[in-house]
Design a protein around this nucleic acid. Structure first.
Lengths: 124, 124
DNA sequence: CCGTATCCGCGGTGATACTG
DNA sequence: CAGTATCACCGCGGATACGG
């Protein structure tokens, strides 16, 4: 890795403030997972719920609403019967792709490590 | 960006499971911020608290303990008087650097965007 | 300096039932 | 299908005091 980028974090730096801002936006257990699922492609409510897993409808609805407020996700109601609602990343939401990729990539490495260590995985 | 990596997220994929695992490890409001601060360099308790900002001692202590359990952070008690305690990333913890860099980088962009839009920043 | 102990309120989260 | 309403729990996280 040439050019290991040194982050400047001295004394409540801009970097730390920015990080805290970012983390604020992704509070809640599911927001990143939702973004990740949507990063793949446009999805309907039910599909998202299946993807993310154990999230309840209430939580999914709430988190999506918050993501929409922050302009990361766009909600589209289709005039079908019964109604269909599609969610997709905004172009701004798409700017999170690299974050998500790194997170997933780390998670995969982490899983391998856990597996090597013989830990038991939670029910999922 | 050549080679836009397509994530495979169909139906509770390994990627999503990995992501959820990763997110589990970073639950709590402060863990990422702590890792970020430590990514810069080794720090003592008080320094960390100053860096992260509004975190209380109890929370910092708790989060550090959990990070230690997950082998992301190493705790060293120095035999001074009064005692000094240093925290640093383990090499495994260091593997999160890319995630942190992307997160900070996104946060900085986000701040600029917020600023452009004329939103008021929270007190920090 | 580096924590731990205790108290406590609030809200995040889940379960379930219901609506358009 | 895509939510909302309601109830209830528990653990996050703050405040404060204390301990090594």
């Amino acid at each position: 890795m040439p050019g290991k980028k040194a982050l400047n974090l001295e004394g409540r730096s801009q970097d730390m403030l920015a990080l805290l801002d970012a983390l604020d936006i992704f509070n809640g257990k599911w927001k990143i997972a939702i973004m990740c699922s949507l990063n793949e492609r446009k999805k309907r409510f039910k599909d998202l719920q299946r993807d993310v897993g154990k999230i309840t409808g209430k939580m999914l609805s709430k988190e999506l609403k918050e993501l929409e407020i922050n302009e990361l996700v766009k909600r589209t109601v289709l005039d079908t019967k019964p109604v269909t609602v599609e969610y997709e990343l905004t172009s701004y939401g798409g700017s999170l792709e690299k974050v998500i990729i790194e997170l997933v990539s780390w998670g995969l490495k982490h899983r391998k490590r856990i597996f090597r260590k013989g830990f038991i995985d939670k029910k999922r």
